[in-house]
Amino acid sequence: MSLARRLSAPLAWALLLAALMLLMPLFEEVFRLVAPDTRAVIYQRDSFASLVANHLLLVGVASLCAIVVGMGAAILVTRQWGRDFLPLVSQLASIGQTFPPVAVLALAVPVLGFGSQPTIVALILYGLLPIVRNTLVGIQGIAPGVMESARGMGMSGRQILWQVELPLARPVILAGIRTSVTINIATAAIGSTIGARTLGDPIIAGIVNGNTAFILQGALLIALLALCVDSLFERLQLR
């Protein structure tokens, strides 16, 4: 499959996202249908483009950290010498997932203040589990005979990790990262409650002012962003 064809689906979603983001005012009449009684139908406190960019930045930074920490932890506890920490790491990752992001925000604000930082921390914690779990499953799911012969042939630990374990676990790890990033694109919106600039801003404003059109605009852009990134990962996994 050519690169262009492989990227066609994510590209289509991206174009749709860009169109909506830049040309939102053109749809004023449409949004007036859902919120006929309000004065401003299109959210204007910030440009949608900058909100999308900032939203992506938060999710990107958080996901990158979650990938490094999550994969790193999972790789460490599947080494011979790290095996003792396997149960601990699995449990910690599960706890990160069960902890509601709003509660993380509430706890993080006193320490980190308002804005982006506590949001990123919450997203990292929330996004860890799928990555840790899938990296563990991916590595542990490799046939014992493959690992045995890799060692028996005289490969070093590092060679086994890079040439055998990671390539074989790749599809499963990618699936975990995909889940994590997609969930976090949706979750990042709550950062707006503590002053991070995200696509949650129009939603919060809409809730506060009773403006359904604002809510819809924020929700639509978040959904398109999630679809765009998700289809990009789908293509990556197919390779």
């Binding site: 005979g145 028996g152 042939m153 005289g154």
Partner: peptide, 20 residues
């Protein structure tokens, strides 16, 4: 130990061929 193993051929029942 790695150098030792590279000098010794090793074949097992499940073949252990790398699937990728």
């Amino acid at each position: 130990e790695q150098r030792l193993r590279r000098r010794i051929g090793y074949a097992i029942q499940s073949t252990g061929l790398f699937p990728h």
